[in-house]
């Protein structure tokens, strides 16, 4: 049998568009694979027919609606988390999970013995854990500099301070952590910049939040600013460090435990 590989855009909608296409093409699920673009694109396979699937919002939406209706909102969440991960096989895992889900309904998420379900759960868990970690370990710095014009904040937004944070996540977690911080800091202007995927979550005081792509390319001065502490900020950071150092019970010193609970990769300078 000829193998069919569908390449799609690396986004939740892109992957769901390709799933829609796979169902339309009817090559047989066992002989069809979905890959995200950019991953080993030049890595040609013998005896495989490749197709590029463009993003189609309507197709993606119809798959999403069917998924929520037939497999449930838990499954939908797991698929969204998986689609935001950096797992190389995520698109194919989502596709084959959906094939099982549309056949078996809501109980599919509990099929631990199925390799695709198990894999989806593994990726989902990894992304959830990373989301929690950034909720815990992300730090904000306060800026007094004037950045209102470039930030596209609404007219009249109170701009005397802006909190920024720079993170380096493996998955595209910004969209997952913004609800938590928006709920927590309704009266702050803040910006969380993911320098790995070059995207930012932006929240205006008293308003809602949105995601902005390619901030680093469009507004390099803002991206650069997220790494900098102003003088007044250094004062607060010194206070925190003084507190942090003093609360260790020296007799219980345990660097290994500390680093297993808080991996060094979360310690941004």
């Amino acid at each position: 049998m000829m193998k069919h590989i569908l390449y799609c855009e690396d986004s939740p909608e892109g992957i769901l568009s390709a799933v829609h296409e796979a169902y339309t093409l009817r090559y047989g699920h066992a002989d069809t694979e979905i890959r995200t673009e950019g991953r080993d694109a030049e890595n040609m396979e013998l005896f495989a027919q490749t197709t590029k699937v463009p993003l189609n919002q309507a197709h993606a939406a119809s798959v999403r609606d069917a998924l929520i209706r037939k497999i449930g909102s838990d499954a939908y969440d797991m698929i969204m988390y998986t689609a935001l991960s950096n797992a190389p096989d995520k698109a194919d895992v989502i596709y084959h999970f959906l094939v099982r889900g549309f056949a078996n309904g809501e109980k599919t998420v509990d099929f631990y013995s199925d390799p695709y379900v198990a894999r989806l759960r593994t990726i989902d868990r990894k992304v959830s854990r990373e989301t929690c970690h950034w909720n815990e370990f992300l730090r904000f710095r306060e800026h007094t500099a004037q950045m209102a014009p470039a930030l596209m904040l609404p007219e009249g937004a109170n701009m005397h301070t802006l909190m920024t944070s720079r993170i380096t996540p493996e998955a595209r977690v910004v969209v997952l952590i913004m609800p938590h911080f928006s709920d927590r800091f309704p009266e702050e202007n803040f910006l969380i910049y993911d320098s790995v995927h070059d995207e930012a979550g932006i929240h205006a005081a008293g308003g809602s939040w949105y995601i902005s792509q390619q901030i680093g390319r469009q507004f390099p001065e803002i991206a650069a600013l997220t790494g900098v502490a102003e003088t007044a900020e250094e004062e607060v950071e010194r206070l925190w460090k003084a507190f942090f150092d003093t609360i260790e019970i020296k007799q219980r010193h345990n660097t290994k435990l500390q680093q297993s609970l808080m991996p060094l990769k979360f310690r941004v300078s």
Binding site: E136, F137, F244, I247, E248, I249, H253, L257, Q258, M262
Partner: peptide, 9 residues
């Protein structure tokens, strides 16, 4: 938990 001290707490 927002941080872990040098004793792992």
């Amino acid at each position: 938990c927002h941080a872990f001290a040098a004793d792992g707490r």
